[in-house]
């Protein structure tokens, strides 16, 4: 293959890449993923692993409640 064909392959993949990124960003905006971000930060906590609870320690060491 010559330079032109390599550039063509690269260009097609680059377009797909940027199209994918643009679609992801558009989807995130439409579905409200980019609003109220600070609330989103708490989404990893729940009743099993609540906020304020240390969930890992060396074995046979007691865990403490933290605020």
């Amino acid at each position: 293959m010559d330079w032109g064909q390599y550039i063509l392959i690269g260009f097609v993949f680059a377009c797909l890449f940027f199209l994918g990124a643009a679609l992801a960003l558009h989807w995130a905006h439409r579905h409200g993923q980019l609003t109220n971000l600070e609330k989103g930060a708490q989404s990893i906590f729940d009743e099993d692993e609540p906020m304020g609870e240390i969930t890992d320690a060396f074995p046979r060491k007691r865990r403490k409640k933290k605020n």
Binding site: E38, I44, F45, E49, G52, I54, K66
Partner: peptide, 9 residues
């Protein structure tokens, strides 16, 4: 990091 420490990022 936030999960273990129980504190949001």
């Amino acid at each position: 990091i936030p999960k273990v420490l129980g504190r949001p990022i």
